[in-house]
């Protein structure tokens, strides 16, 4: 599903964010990307999401070289990817309902369908009764739950997560990980950037370890 082929990304002053990165991810895999700060985890996710473009090499998603996706087609490519951030990236002046419904509103989905789908997920994740509140009224764990539902609600084949448990306590982190596992069990490919060693060990998934922009190990459990 994903193939990185000799990918280089160099920022100003010759800082190599990615240095000859090669790896593949099969459909339905759950892969952790780990390493210290500045190792290149976020850069890999940004390139996949086409926030940025590689300086050298190629990245294929579903056999398509994503560097060649035009500006016009980019929004449609992004609709196949769910993104979860450490800082949630929620719309703080809108309700939980509006935040979750956003990807469906953008794709002009039927209002009734949106209502049913959003309510279903709100109930499943224990956020019932909070749908009309703004994110200001939620705990960190709850905010991240909302972000995950928003990423998953259109059933994208790929979810990218950038340190989604970075701001959460252990209990909330485990709840979030369970959500990701459940999503993955339905066939969604997940690329999960984290430097939380304990959490990665417990999950027993494939781990790609980065350091200074290079892959230093790629191990499957």
């Amino acid at each position: 599903m994903i193939k990185f082929n000799h990918v280089f990304k160099i920022y100003e002053k010759n800082i190599k964010a990615l240095d000859d990165i090669n790896f593949s991810v099969k459909k339905g895999e759950f892969v952790f990307i780990t390493g210290p700060s500045g190792a290149g985890k976020t850069t890999i996710l940004n390139l996949l999401y086409r926030e940025d473009i590689a300086d050298m090499g190629s990245i294929f998603v579903n056999n398509e070289d994503i560097a060649h996706i035009s500006e016009r087609k980019l929004p449609f490519y992004r609709r196949n990817i769910g993104f979860v951030f450490q800082d949630f990236k929620l719309l703080f002046d809108r309700t939980i309902y509006d935040n979750i419904a956003l990807p469906l509103v953008i794709t002009k989905t039927d209002k009734k369908f949106i209502k049913n789908k959003v309510e279903e997920y709100i109930e499943k994740t224990g956020l019932s009764g909070k749908e009309n509140l703004t994110p200001w009224h939620l705990s960190g764990g709850e905010k991240q739950k909302v972000a995950i539902i928003r990423a998953f609600i259109i059933n994208p084949p790929l979810i990218l997560a950038d340190e989604p448990t970075g701001n959460l306590d252990d209990e909330s982190s485990w709840e979030i990980m369970k959500m990701f596992e459940e999503i993955n069990s339905k066939g969604t490919t997940i690329l999960f950037a984290s430097h939380n060693k304990e959490l990665i060990q417990k999950m027993k998934k494939r781990v790609i370890k980065l350091d200074k922009g290079r892959i230093i190990s790629d191990e499957s459990v």
Partner: peptide, 12 residues
Amino acid sequence: QDIYIFKMVGAT
């Protein structure tokens, strides 16, 4: 920030 989020979820 809102515009970034809109773009992230695939808004044209």
